[in-house]
């Protein structure tokens, strides 16, 4: 099986008032295509930073990140934006839907960057809303949906461009237990049925158990599996 993600000796530090704050230290690991990886660790361990690097929204101070065969740390900002649009689906803790757009329009949003026709876009949106079980809510605004439903719309938005890799940052962090279960079931389905590679950050061990692989980060160091 091919590697979807290759992290080659990646380190990352931030500078605050001339003081270097190391966040990731010499991270080196691979994620196979079709994997469902959960990254766990205490606050400040660097897991979100690592996730951001895999997603191409942050750059390593040293080392290389290769995703789906592309060395993304070498891409320019505009190249990265294009690359993210076609390769990555984002699922955020707070859903981050646009409140003035309906569920349908929120899901359609990434497609306005493509050259798809209106009918093709409609077909894509309706398909993914059916996958997440919200076909009957497509005309509802985020404010008219429950937290779990909002997150399902966010997941539909993440998969509407059919990306190879899904990045989920605490996807159940703002949900109750029942909604969290629903979301995790959906993510497992995306992984098994639709062959999506998923990298998820979570604090919750019960949620992490749903992933196929679990890795821990502590003080910027990836612990042995």
């Amino acid at each position: 099986m091919q590697n979807m993600i290759e992290i080659h000796t990646v380190s990352k530090s931030y500078w605050r008032e001339k003081i270097e704050i190391p966040v990731l230290d010499n991270i080196d690991f691979r994620v196979a295509e079709g994997e469902f990886l959960a990254l766990m660790g205490p606050s400040g361990s660097g897991k979100t930073t690592l996730l951001n690097m895999i997603a191409g929204i942050d750059r390593p101070s040293s080392g290389e990140v290769v995703v789906n065969g592309t060395a993304i740390s070498k891409l320019s900002e505009s190249q990265l934006a294009r690359w993210r649009a076609s390769n990555i689906g984002f699922i955020f803790q707070f859903y981050n839907l646009i409140p003035v757009l309906t569920a349908y329009e929120n899901v359609e949003l990434p497609l306005i960057l493509t050259k798809l026709s209106k009918s093709e876009r409609q077909q894509h949106v309706e398909t993914v809303l059916a996958i997440v079980g919200l076909s009957d809510r497509m005309d509802h605004y985020p404010g008219q949906l429950s937290g779990g439903q909002e997150q399902r719309v966010a997941i539909a938005r993440a998969i509407v461009t059919d990306p190879a890799l899904l990045i989920a940052d605490e996807p159940t962090g703002d949900l109750d237990k029942s909604s969290s279960e629903e979301i995790m079931t959906l993510m497992q389905r995306l992984n098994t049925e639709f062959r999506k590679t998923i990298v998820m950050v979570t604090h919750d061990p019960h949620i992490a158990e749903k992933a196929k692989v679990l890795r821990h980060l502590e003080k910027g160091v990836l612990l042995e599996a």
Binding site: A55, I57, E77, S78, A81, R82, R84, A85, S86, I88, F90, F92, N96, I98, L109, P110, L113, R157
Partner: peptide, 12 residues
């Protein structure tokens, strides 16, 4: 929202 738009591929 703008950060999310950037993340999902909206260019400058």
């Amino acid at each position: 929202e703008y950060a999310v738009l950037k993340a999902i591929g909206f260019s400058a």
